[in-house]
């Protein structure tokens, strides 16, 4: 069963003569374990599609079904709960909270979900240790490198065991080596933990990691092809060449 079934999505910004159709009839099924790379030129609607799939934005028309329920019709509070439990987000500019330590940043979704602070911090510590950040727990984001920040963001995204991870240009601000580290993480989340991963990126090297590559132009899905994903996720080798 699909994690997400998006059907005939349309998103129009503005009204009347100034209206712009950002998404135009896109349908997309996302299955557990999928690694979908969405590509396309700037302004083609990639990020808008990611926002709609991630329940950050409602479509003007169409449906987004999660476990058979249309999330496009849910209230703001229902969507917030859904995002907390089902989705994890990774952003190009990391978007860590500047006043919180790495450990606290990674613990936010757990505490928001109602976990006691001590337990949440313990789990965040374990997660960060898995991402080789065990010695950076008390560092503020300003004291972390780009790769470390993105790994903290990944720990935050994975904290609540989401079914779907949505990543917007996750490697854009990283060098090749750190980009590979982050991709290995995402690849592992899909292959070992059976989570669906949707990545929006201009980076063609990510085709080597993706299972499906979707191209969007002018809000329309123009092409879907198989990626060069290897089931063993040997990301570093493929990504770095």
């Amino acid at each position: 069963m699909s994690v997400i079934e998006a059907k005939r999505l349309i998103k129009i910004f503005g009204f009347g003569r100034t209206a712009v159709k950002a998404i135009d009839g896109v349908s997309l099924d996302i299955d557990p374990g999928d690694i979908i790379l969405i590509m396309g030129p700037s302004g083609s609607g990639k990020t808008t599609l990611l926002s709609i799939i991630g329940s950050l934005m409602r479509p003007t028309e169409g449906t987004v079904l999660l476990a058979g329920e249309n999330i496009a019709k849910m209230s703001d509070n229902q969507l917030a709960s859904l995002r907390l439990r089902k989705f994890g987000f990774i952003f190009q500019s990391f978007n860590l909270l500047s006043a919180l330590t790495a450990q606290e940043n990674a613990a936010i979704p757990l505490m928001t979900a109602g976990m006691p602070k001590r337990e949440a911090l313990k789990q965040a510590k374990e997660q960060l240790a898995k991402l080789h950040l065990g010695d950076r727990l008390d560092n503020l984001p300003k004291d972390l490198s780009g790769g470390e920040k993105q790994r903290v963001a990944a720990a935050r995204a994975l904290a609540n065991q989401p079914e779907l991870i949505l990543a917007d240009e996750p490697t854009a601000n990283l060098d090749a080596k750190t980009g590979a580290e982050v991709m290995r993480l995402l690849c592992n989340a899909a292959c070992a933990e059976n989570r669906a991963v949707v990545i929006v990126s201009h980076d063609v090297r990510l085709k080597e990691v993706a299972k499906r590559v979707i191209t969007i132009e002018d809000g329309r899905l123009t092409k879907e092809e198989k990626g060069n994903h290897d089931a063993n996720c040997p990301v570093e080798h493929k990504y770095a060449h």
Partner: peptide
């Protein structure tokens, strides 16, 4: 406001 937006995206409700 961007950090509040991040918190909203993560799943915090307006009330929180």
């Amino acid at each position: 406001s961007r950090e509040y937006g991040v918190l909203k995206a993560i799943g915090l409700k307006n009330r929180q």
